[in-house]
Amino acid sequence: MTSLLLLVEHAGGNVRRASLEAIGAAQAAGAATTAVLYGEGAAEAAATCGATQAIVLTGEGANSPDAVAAKLADLVTSTGANGFVAAATSAGKDLAPRVAAHLDAVLFTDCIALDAAGDGFSVRRPWLAGKAIAELTTTGSALCATTRPNVFAAAAAGTPGDVSEVAIDATPKARVVSVEDKGEAKLDVKEAPVVISGGRGLKEPEGFGILEDLANAFGTAAVGASRAVVDMGWRPHSDQVGQTGKTVSPQLYIAVGISGAIQHLAGMKTSKTIVAINKDADAPIFKVADYGIVGDAFEVVPALTAAVKAAKG
């Protein structure tokens, strides 16, 4: 049976949803799974991660991306795994290429389908931020891939058959010395099940207040932004949705005051349901929207916020 080593991220003792989806993707691809976790609360998260087995990394080296990646590659080899999979998160995107290079394997990033059941491996992944979809195989012996959040079904929680500890003793070339907390946990646009993005139609930075209110009404929502407003400095680049920002696939994407430039559409077109609110009935965003409301954001969004609150009870 194929077996895959997985980077599993966690916070507050709970496995991150994107990692559960990565485990789910590996399981659905027909692989046994070995989860690797590190950092505070790793042992607690490992206990319910749902993988076949789990390894907790300990020691100073866990602060270093190069030391962690070298250890992950060692573990792929020592556990006899056929490859390495991580969610396409900040950590996954940073570590997976290093692990792949240690294994001298090509890396398939941001995959939307994985197949490891047959003789070889095959994946599907977007090109040009989703304007095209490529299906790829590898002539290499290892499968290295990252999975796009919000695409795969999450693995069910479960206790791994075996949880062991492995120490990282390395001389790192780079190490994390501090992490500046965002304060209250802010959902990233890439992982949020609901994304509400705003554009120029919000007129000024303060206009995003109505989107924050709507996001709060949903509870688990993130506020995104178009390139235009990020370029004007209204919103941080980490919130930008589109080809030069983040590509997102939430359950629900609400575009407010965004006309729908090609590079923005590429970044959100795979959302399950798309709602557009725009004054201009001819805006291209309506061509990809499932539901549209033609109207002024400052009139429609507060009414929508009240209605969502009422619907959520």
Partner: peptide
């Protein structure tokens, strides 16, 4: 290499609040 399937045709549900 394929193009993603086109999204099903959406609709305008109405105007304003």
């Amino acid at each position: 290499v394929t193009l993603p399937p086109p999204r099903p045709e959406g609709r305008i549900v109405g105007e304003g609040a």
